Amino acid sequence: MLIVPNGPKATLWPRRVLVGWDSRPEASRAVREALGLLCAAEEVRVALVDPKANYNGNSAEPGADIAAHLTRHGARVSIDLLPSAGKPAATVLAQHATDISADMIVIGAYGSRRLRERLFGGVTRWIVEKPTLPLFLAR
């Protein structure tokens, strides 16, 4: 699903794309479905918020596996390990997207249980409700 907020100019061929990565199936699906966009982009930044090695599918180097996968497909990738400093992951990702002048964010949608997501929010809910730039979501 592609969500385009009012204001920013949207394109199906963004130059700089931020991928919110957490090694979950939803994130993997989002990357797989956005692969054409990611390979055509001038720069792909894979962002991990408070990653831990060997946790939730991360290798000893968090983000290295997805970066290698994208590189094999021709994408120009760099990894950004972001500290949350107590802020929600969505806030950190949105701020980082602004800081790097991203044209689009690619994330997996609704990785948490729907009831929990509805009651307490989450990255997907927060980013979808307050998008600042186009979002490519996959579930």
Rank of each mutant, 00 (worst) to 15 (best):
128 V>G: 00
89 A>E: 13
78 S>D: 10
115 L>C: 08
99 D>L: 11
114 R>M: 10
76 R>S: 11
45 R>N: 04
124 T>E: 10
125 R>M: 05
25 P>L: 08
111 G>L: 07
105 I>E: 07
58 N>T: 08
133 L>P: 14
23 S>Y: 03
59 S>W: 00
40 A>I: 10
19 V>S: 05
36 G>F: 05
9 K>I: 06
6 N>W: 04
113 R>D: 15
45 R>L: 01
26 E>P: 12
14 P>A: 08
31 V>S: 11
53 A>H: 12
87 K>M: 07
4 V>D: 04
23 S>M: 04
85 A>F: 01
35 L>W: 01
60 A>G: 03
119 L>K: 09
91 T>Y: 05
135 L>M: 09
15 R>I: 02
32 R>N: 12
26 E>G: 09
13 W>E: 00
12 L>V: 03
42 E>H: 14
131 P>H: 06
65 D>K: 09
20 G>T: 05
6 N>K: 09
10 A>C: 00
79 I>S: 05
3 I>T: 15
115 L>V: 14
50 D>W: 02
39 C>P: 14
38 L>K: 10
14 P>S: 11
110 Y>H: 08
74 G>F: 11
26 E>I: 05
73 H>D: 09
84 S>G: 10
75 A>V: 04
23 S>K: 00
109 A>T: 06
69 H>Y: 13
49 V>C: 08
8 P>S: 10
65 D>N: 08
45 R>G: 00
21 W>G: 13
67 A>K: 09
100 I>K: 01
24 R>S: 15
106 V>C: 06
4 V>Y: 04
